[in-house]
């Protein structure tokens, strides 16, 4: 039996734009299972990034209930949310968002500062994460000395360094060429399959979306449909047999 990791009930989120109130998420109900790789698709303005931010604890809903990894995020204060993010979520952004002044290994080590690990242990774990994404030979490089694909892989290493339950990726292949994008997507698949990470990836790219097990379609702030991908079917069939 699969376990629900993300549970949304009637979640609403609006923004003020001048005199206008823009409802981005409109009573959204959605459940997502643990250790599953989801793509989140929908037209611009459908609320994809807003949903990702709410699930990641970067933002809070105006109404409704949002439980992620057993925690009702609407009940947490700002500082509790920050702590929760550190323990449960790894972010991967379209623009990589590495700290430009730090080396690759220092970037990966950053989230580990929020753990009780010793300096040596942090270094070891960061190095392991970089090895995992195939950048063991680029540890001392600064972001500007890396290609876009390599930067995104460092960002993924950073996202998994503290071993979070959930990885949230906002258009992770948006700024990459096809070959680099394929590498990143393959890496996300591995993290899902081998490390049992739950991944939610916002994308506009149908090819990228097919790398997930299921595609969640949003439309005008509401759930459109949840569609199983070919990969999802084959994984399900494999698990049955």
């Amino acid at each position: 039996m699969t376990e629900v990791l993300i549970d949304l009930e009637g979640v609403c989120r609006s923004y003020e734009r001048g005199n206008e109130t823009l409802r981005v998420l409109d009573h959204l109900d959605l459940q997502m299972e643990r250790a599953t790789f989801y793509s989140l698709m929908g037209p611009s303005g459908s609320g994809k990034t807003t949903l990702l931010n709410l699930i990641g604890g970067l933002d809070q809903a105006d109404a409704g209930k949002l439980v992620v990894a057993g925690e009702d995020l609407s009940q947490l204060s700002k500082s509790e949310l920050a702590r929760w993010r550190a323990d449960n979520v790894g972010f991967v952004f379209q623009g990589f968002n590495l700290l430009p002044v730090l080396t690759a290994i220092e970037n990966v080590e950053m989230p580990l500062l929020l753990t009780p690990l010793s300096k040596a242990r942090r270094r070891e774990q960061a190095a392991f994460a970089l090895e995992l994404v195939g950048l063991g030979d680029r540890m001392k490089h600064r972001p500007r000395e890396l290609s876009g694909g390599q930067e995104q892989r460092v960002a993924i290493a950073r996202a998994i360094a503290s071993d979070p339950t959930l990885i949230l990726a906002d258009e992770p292949t948006g700024d990459l060429d096809r070959a680099s994008a394929d590498q990143v997507l393959a890496l996300l698949q591995r993290l899902n399959q081998e490390l049992q990470k739950t991944i939610l990836m916002v994308t506009h790219d149908p090819v990228a979306a097919e790398h997930a097990s299921a595609i969640v379609h949003l439309d005008k702030g509401r759930l459109g449909s949840i569609e199983e991908t070919a990969r999802g079917r084959s994984l399900r069939e494999a698990s049955v047999t």
Binding site: G56, L58, K78, S79, A82, R83, W84, R85, A86, D87, V89, F91, N97, L98, L99, P100, V101, M110, P111, L113, L114, R158
Partner: peptide
């Protein structure tokens, strides 16, 4: 701004 946003997203406190 961006770096501070990244730090906060990672879970670093205000």
């Amino acid at each position: 701004t961006r770096s501070n946003g990244i730090l906060k997203a990672m879970g670093f406190s205000d």
